[in-house]
């Protein structure tokens, strides 16, 4: 009986931290996150309209070229923000030892896998009718494939280690090394061979202004979506961490 009494007392003593930190009913939400979500949906609908209806049909490639807008947007997110955030948060974690950076890095890596997969699958679908082959060992394709493997390896490493500072340290080290590696991979494969169309290399390349607008809107829309999903995912991880902590306090004290 006495034991039960102490247990109940610990329950009662436990600060209502969960309730307070969670910010009331309805989950871990706040207005700006909802606004970001709504904004990204609207932006994507607008980008879809521009890409599928408004933009002119490409003269040589035909309608399949309309895949290009979201293909490039996904590639940009995979190579740019996703991996950049992983690397930046890895460095920040090693510096500050704050697990929140680790959570941001892991959320960004998850999104990176998703966007890299989209790039890798839409690329061949577009390439088949145009180049006559699903896959070519072109620098950007190959680099994206290597990038995919690095992202997946990062997540595999995380899933193999128990949550905590050790996992954060190891994955941060791998994230930094991987990030430094990607430009070298790109350079090496570029010397090896290239046939990929250069799109925005010099002054917009051969892209019509209308198409360029549709492309930039698609990139913007996907970037908003990335930001929204990242915030949601990081907040989930924050909540899960707090839950673990409170449970730990309750049951192990």
């Amino acid at each position: 009986m006495a034991e039960e009494q102490t247990l109940k007392r610990t329950f009662a003593e436990a600060p209502p931290a969960v309730i307070e930190q969670r910010g009331g009913r309805g989950g871990d939400r706040s207005l700006w996150v909802d606004a970001l979500g709504a904004g990204s949906i609207l932006a994507i609908l607008f980008a879809l309209y521009l890409a599928l209806i408004w933009a002119p049909t490409e003269a040589v490639m035909g309608d399949i070229q309309r895949l290009f807008y979201f293909h490039v947007a996904a590639a940009w997110l995979a190579l740019g923000p996703s991996f950049g955030v992983v690397a930046a948060c890895s460095v920040l974690y090693l510096w500050k030892k704050d697990l929140r950076y680790d959570r941001i890095a892991s959320a960004s890596a998850e999104l990176g896998v998703m966007f890299t997969t989209i790039t890798l699958v839409t690329g061949p679908i577009w390439a088949r009718p145009i180049w006559g082959a699903y896959w070519t060992w072109d620098p950007r394709l190959t680099t994206t494939l290597v990038l995919w493997f690095i992202f997946v390896a990062y997540l595999m490493l995380r899933s193999a280690v128990d949550a905590g500072h050790k996992r954060a340290r190891l994955s941060a080290v791998f994230g930094i090394v991987g990030w430094i590696d990607v430009p070298i991979v790109f350079m090496s494969i570029r010397w090896w061979r290239t046939i990929h169309p250069t799109v925005i290399a010099s002054e917009g390349g051969g892209l019509a202004p209308d198409m360029r607008l549709a492309l930039f809107v698609a990139i913007g829309a996907f970037t908003l979506l990335y930001a929204y999903l990242l915030v949601v995912r990081v907040r989930q991880e924050d909540l899960a961490t707090r839950l673990d902590r409170v449970r730990h306090q309750l049951y192990l004290r």
Binding site: F149, M156, G178, V185, M187
Partner: peptide, 20 residues
């Protein structure tokens, strides 16, 4: 080193980074 699946994991971590 401290990971249960270290043999496979090392290959998965190392090979993509070794491409260049």
């Amino acid at each position: 080193v401290g990971i249960k699946t270290r043999d496979v994991l090392l290959a998965i971590l190392l090979f993509p980074v070794l491409v260049p």
